[in-house]
């Protein structure tokens, strides 16, 4: 569904990605790990086509179409969606109105039901993200995605700032949604993986995906050895390849 080929990305004058390759098929739930500043969020914004995320080389192919040069809204219309880590507050646009903007096919009744399910019914009349806590903003993002119904969704740290109870709620909904679609979930906390049955995990380091495999195993490795461990493992692999 999504194929990234040899992506080189520059953000704010700094090279962030150096020849990243990644393929995600329909129904695949990919978890993305990587230290702060590795370029995980930059990758999502580049896939979404945000200006300032300059593709120096490489391609982003979505549903067989090269979208590398498409503007953001057209990518959204093709079925790409992103749940932001820190979404902006917009004065005068209520969450309810945001949902009307997002809506592709959801009925009023469905929207109401989803808002209730995510404990966001009381927020519909409030300006979107204005004065929302971290957890509320994350639930508002998820609600928008569920109403937008993109075929490929990127969740940027959907669990940061969310209390334990709501991580379960958010995690289960993400899992349920991605089962019928596809997407990427960036996380630093392993806890949400108890609810998202990811098919695989990738580690982004040095501007490339250096490792991919079983999410739990990789998470455990990172927990015990840190990303330093990934660097060493990579070096060993390199030596083996050369040897």
């Amino acid at each position: 569904m999504l194929k990234i080929e040899d992506l080189h990305l520059k953000v704010g004058g700094k090279k962030v990605l150096n020849g990243l390759d990644l393929t995600i098929e329909q129904g695949e739930k990919t978890v993305m790990f990587g230290p702060n500043g590795a370029g995980k969020s930059s990758l999502l914004y580049a896939i979404m086509g945000f200006p300032g995320y300059e593709v120096l080389q490489g391609k982003v192919i979505f549903k067989g179409k090269d979208i590398t040069k498409l503007p953001v809204d057209q990518r959204a219309k093709l079925g790409l969606g992103v749940a932001f880590q820190s979404p902006p507050a917009i004065r005068g646009i209520k969450l309810k109105e945001m949902l009307a903007i997002c809506r592709t096919s959801a009925s009023d009744a469905e929207i109401k039901k989803l808002a209730e399910k995510l404990n966001m019914a009381d927020f519909l009349e409030r300006d979107v993200n204005l004065g929302f806590s971290g957890g509320e903003a994350k639930r508002a993002e998820l609600l928008q995605i569920l109403v937008q119904r993109p075929s490929f969704v990127m969740f940027d740290e959907p669990d940061s700032g969310v209390d334990v109870e709501n991580v379960e709620l958010v995690g289960k909904e993400i899992d349920r949604y991605l089962s019928g679609h596809a997407g990427i979930v960036i996380t630093h906390q392993g806890y949400i993986l108890n609810f998202i049955k990811a098919s695989r995990a990738c580690v982004l380091l040095g501007g490339r995906i250096i490792c991919s495999g079983d999410p739990r195993e990789i998470m455990e490795d990172i927990k015990s050895k840190g990303y330093e461990g990934c660097v060493k493992c990579q070096a060993r692999k390199g030596m083996r390849d050369e040897g």
Binding site: F50, P71, V72, D73, A76, K77, I101
Partner: peptide, 14 residues
């Protein structure tokens, strides 16, 4: 710009 991009990522034109 962040607000414009936010709405564009939900499908609105610039």
């Amino acid at each position: 710009e962040k607000e414009i991009l936010y709405l564009m990522s939900r499908g609105l034109s610039e």
